[in-house]
């Protein structure tokens, strides 16, 4: 599996970029000794220089430090939301597919309803109601996002249930929970993983869009979407303030999309034409 992934150069490139940015977020204190919140009113709007590799912002804060620490907020929220989505989506899909009956019908109607809303609009409304914060963005995005995963997992479970090894296990008297964990889940996870990697880019775009709109991270948190929003009034005098955070979002999303694209080809070689 890894051999073919490596051969897909774009996927590999994506993986490398993500690794680099992830390391940047984790090891931020070792990469820069600047504090992302340290203001210096004598050195505002400085263009990139030796001292400040990416320049300084409207409060004289070091932009590189803000981007590095900001990766923790942006990526952390994305990973947290995706984790929550996968947990709930997979659990609901498994329960729905394996148990069937009224519970299945009820859960799937809930899924229908969630999918009947334009997702970003619903997330925006939920966050607006809970109050602007990055945590609430995570909750809003996850509350909307699990539905499509539940539907996919349920579909997979239904087709797996017809397979002989599952029937055999059930015939041997294995409990449903055990069958779910031992026989169904391992077959469901690879597909879910591919979906998640394909979806991760969009999730990050949604999170940073909400922060950009002002309902997500609040100042002075160096979240990337928030930084872009803060840079808007200074477009004329300091374009580097919007250039670098946007570039950071773009690169991470692109890397996830490269990776997801490669993983999809791996999972379903028939799609590769």
């Amino acid at each position: 599996m890894w051999g073919r992934l490596v051969r897909d150069r774009l996927a590999l490139l994506g993986l490398l970029v993500l690794g680099a940015i992830g390391a940047g977020a984790l090891f931020a204190p070792w990469i820069t000794d600047r504090d992302p919140l340290d203001t210096n009113f004598l050195r505002r709007f400085e263009p990139p220089s030796r001292e400040h590799p990416l320049g300084t912002d409207q409060l004289g804060r070091d932009l590189l430090a803000r981007l590095l620490y900001g990766a923790r907020y942006t990526l952390g929220t994305g990973l947290g939301a995706m984790g929550l989505i996968l947990l709930v989506g997979t659990a609901v899909g498994l329960v729905s597919g394996l148990l069937g009956g009224r519970l299945d019908a009820l859960l799937m109607r809930m899924v229908d309803v969630l999918l009947a809303f334009p997702s970003l609009i619903l997330a925006l409304a939920i966050v607006g109601m809970l109050g602007p914060s990055l945590t609430n963005v995570l909750i809003g995005i996850a509350a909307v996002g699990w539905a499509s995963y539940a539907r996919v997992v349920r579909g997979l479970v239904l087709s797996l249930r017809e397979r002989e090894f599952v029937e055999a296990a059930l015939a041997l008297g294995a409990g449903r929970l055990w069958v779910a964990r031992r026989h169904v889940l391992p077959h469901v996870l690879p597909t879910v993983a591919v979906l998640a990697s394909l979806d991760m880019g969009n999730l990050l775009l949604a999170i940073s869009a909400l922060s950009f709109l002002g309902v997500g991270a609040q100042a002075p948190t160096p979240e990337w979407g928030r930084m872009l929003n803060d840079a808007r009034p200074f477009l004329w005098q300091a374009p580097h303030l919007m250039l670098f955070p946007g570039l950071a979002i773009f690169l991470v999303v692109l890397a996830f999309n490269f990776l997801g694209d490669g993983l999809r080809d791996l999972l379903d070689p028939r799609l590769r034409r």
Binding site: S208, W236, M242, G246, F258
Partner: peptide, 24 residues
């Protein structure tokens, strides 16, 4: 490749870039 790049572009950043280029 172009489609992947386009799909990865945050629209709010693209908007700011276009404003900067064509208006500023």
């Amino acid at each position: 490749l172009a489609a992947l790049v386009g799909a990865s572009m945050p629209s709010f950043w693209l908007g700011l870039l276009l404003i900067y280029l064509f208006a500023v």
